[in-house]
Write a protein that binds this DNA or RNA. Structure first.
Length: 285
DNA sequence: CTATCTGTTCTGAC
DNA sequence: TGTCAGAACAGATA
């Protein structure tokens, strides 16, 4: 489920809460969700929580790492000794309910009596135990530049686009090997912001349009991070503090409504690369 | 009831 | 090699 802004929001929340803690033991409820040996993790201390693309890496003081991908329905829920919770990921009501529940895949028990629950209804998500070397290789080989990285340039995008000229821009932008962290929601939103049709072939983009794509990507992702991501996918305590980006979405899941750009058109929904895609065919060309 | 949707990504067929 | 359907799975929605 979560894209870059949501994963970043979860990262920041977890960082504040679990860095410095020692993992006493791990309870694996869904074996397919936990890949690797838990004995390589138990007893080690958490050094940092990092993000690359849509994955979270928990770095340990013994040279090991826990790499998480929440996919569509994963949740991470931290619970302190007073049952105060911080949760991120797929929004549903069992955040506030008793844990573990039927969707709980893995439980990390810390030696101070606090816990981290990894829930996943559809079981697409995973947590892998990796060495530093394995982690670095995945981060280097499997993902393109982060949108906030200096290597995310017009020259880079044009060079990648030249090899796949017929690819539609929406599919291009959501390809993690090209750019890290953009998913369905933010691809639609940034293309609206740039006023470019999701159906445009990358070979038919000019330099100033690529510039607009970069500017809109950074603008939209920053806005989403500022608001804590889309949906009520994150909260810090029982009182709320939920993600608020859903109030700022302009086209995603808005089919039928008037174009927010006041061009007189209406937002429609089509399918691009098998994904629901929302845009205004009048002002996005 | 059926059909179709869902924020992800990987695999295998053509 | 590029493109597409389908799979992994469990719901919610119309």
């Amino acid at each position: 489920m979560p894209e870059l802004p949501e994963v970043e929001t979860i990262r920041r929340g977890l960082e504040k809460r679990i860095v410095g803690k020692t993992i006493a033991d791990i309870d694996v409820r869904f074996p397919k969700t936990f890949v690797g040996s838990k004995s390589k993790v138990e007893g080690s201390k958490i050094k940092s929580v990092e993000r690359r693309a849509k994955v979270l890496a928990v770095k340990l003081n013994n040279g090991g790492n826990l790499l998480f991908h929440l996919k569509m329905t994963g949740q991470l829920i931290y619970i302190d000794r007073n049952d105060k919770r911080f949760a991120g990921g797929h929004p549903d009501h069992n955040w506030h309910a008793k844990l573990p529940n039927s969707t709980t895949a893995v439980i990390f028990n810390f030696n101070d009596g606090t816990h981290l629950f990894f829930n996943d209804m559809r079981k697409f998500g995973w947590c892998k135990v990796l060495t530093d070397e394995q982690l670095n290789k995945i981060f280097t080989d499997e993902y393109g530049p982060e949108p906030f990285d200096k290597n995310f340039t017009v020259e880079y995008l044009m060079q990648r686009a030249a090899k796949i000229p017929n690819r539609k821009i929406k599919q291009f932008l959501t390809d993690q090997t090209i750019i890290a962290g953009i998913g369905n929601i933010y691809a639609d939103e940034l293309l609206f912001d740039a006023r470019i049709s999701p159906l445009r072939k990358v070979s038919e983009m000019n330099k100033s349009e690529w510039k607009k794509v970069i500017a809109s990507t950074i603008k939209i992702l920053n806005l989403a991070i500022k608001h804590g991501g889309t949906t009520d996918s994150d909260f810090v305590n029982a009182d709320g503090e939920k993600g608020g980006m859903q109030d700022y979405l302009k086209v995603y899941r808005k089919s039928g409504s008037n174009c927010p750009g006041d061009c007189g058109g209406k937002v429609i929904r089509i399918t691009v690369g098998g994904r629901g895609t929302h845009y205004c065919p009048v002002c996005q060309q």
